[in-house]
Design a binder for these strands. Sequence first.
DNA 1: ACAAAAGTGTTACAACTACACCCATGG
DNA 2: CCATGGGTGTAGTTGTAACACTTTTGT
Lengths: 263, 263
Amino acid sequence: MKQDLRPQMLKLIEESLPGVSIECVILGYGEGQLKTLLFQTKHEVTWSLPGGYIRKYEDIDEAAHRILEERTGLKSIFLKQFHTFGKKDRSHTNNREQHERIWKALEKFDLNQDPLIKDWMDQRLITMGYYALVDIRKSHPRPHFFFEKCEWISVESLPELFLQQQHTISKVLDHLRVQLNYLPIGRSLLPEKFTMQNLQKLYEIILRRPLVRSNFQRKMLSLGILVRMEKHMTGAPNKAPYQYCFDREQYEIALKKGIGFNI
Amino acid sequence: MKQDLRPQMLKLIEESLPGVSIECVILGYGEGQLKTLLFQTKHEVTWSLPGGYIRKYEDIDEAAHRILEERTGLKSIFLKQFHTFGKKDRSHTNNREQHERIWKALEKFDLNQDPLIKDWMDQRLITMGYYALVDIRKSHPRPHFFFEKCEWISVESLPELFLQQQHTISKVLDHLRVQLNYLPIGRSLLPEKFTMQNLQKLYEIILRRPLVRSNFQRKMLSLGILVRMEKHMTGAPNKAPYQYCFDREQYEIALKKGIGFNI
DNA sequence: ACAAAAGTGTTACAACTACACCCATGG
DNA sequence: CCATGGGTGTAGTTGTAACACTTTTGT
């Protein structure tokens, strides 16, 4: 049963700017791991970062927000441009490792027949990379177009990715580490309520090193950005941990100055 | 005497990618001031940052280096991408304040006659912003194409600029402040040999605050990135200052860790 | 010699690291 | 009572702000 993607594809080409695209590294935190949302094409050709094109009458930031919402259902979250990729050989089809598989997939959908579509797939691309920090539990990722599967995958165990996107991801992670004190890490990646342990674990994962519990706690509380909530009864035979949420106003103020965390 | 720029312009259009452009904030340091290289169009239509287009078979970084070399004669200097601008109304001719003046200038060169050129000037642009740190004394800026004048202008006293490029410049300066410890500020902006005063003044200008001389000196020397040279006789009735140059290897190592300067 | 500038020393304070220790509490 | 969460104390270290002091040198 062959699905005809051509009308959809032609519409997309019609309404988008040629030669430029957007790619998003969407980061979430769950099960003690930093994860990124990846999409797999039909016929398992390859995994890829979510991305898309810019409409002819749309700012690039608008386009990034739209693409993110299409893929995760999330609006108005933390989303930032971080790098533009523009090697001369960058295109959908010029990819040494995956060249054949990509062409086979295009054949399966007859996408290599229509010259307009073929040219579109062959065109040189300049890609604006964005990254987002989201609450993994509030996101509703959904397959899209010729991506039939999507999954939150730990950044520690990435599959082979399209167009060296591993490098893109590790570039974002480096950025995260360096800019840690100026980014809404906790606010964006954690759920509304969380324990001090949750927060510490998150920082440890990003910084890739253990932190001393007592000092971490003292530091965090001294910043005045946390509000203590009722305790969370776990049923475990020990003292229940407090839960916290962020004081949004104080958080904003602290971010501007930089949350002084030594790296 | 009307100069016909059309052949040049048509060649440029022919060999460049449509829809994308590059803009460079070139920073130098001289006379105790941070300066940026600006170009003025013929007939004094407007001042503008140096920029250009990307050739069809050229990486965007290559394009940025080429443009920089065309304008300053400088090769292999510190040049970094920092932001991509992509508002939907960004184009050469869609500019509220300067709209009329721009059209008049195009008329003067008959550039509004040829439909190919007109379309090119009207097209929506996505612009990759780069910034460079250069030794002002080694640069040989030269007018180019329909820019007939160029000048190093203090970032403290910028003229009216094309396409809100003031914002671009101040964005670069903020970046410089924040990233100070990870950027080759001294190495790139100062001449080969310099005095401790030169270096301190540069830091004060960028950080916009005075530094205590003795502490600055101690800090800088303790980093092990400076090599002391012979003294420099000024003819003034006082002790002549030493001159320094950077130890390139040590400088690279220190940059990676971050030259620990408190902001 | 002396004014101006280069360079060194010294002290006090602030912040952080690492670790030990104590208290609280749900089961 | 005990395992775990929460909180305090402190000694050693580092960095640096502030300022006093010494050295150099052209006139």
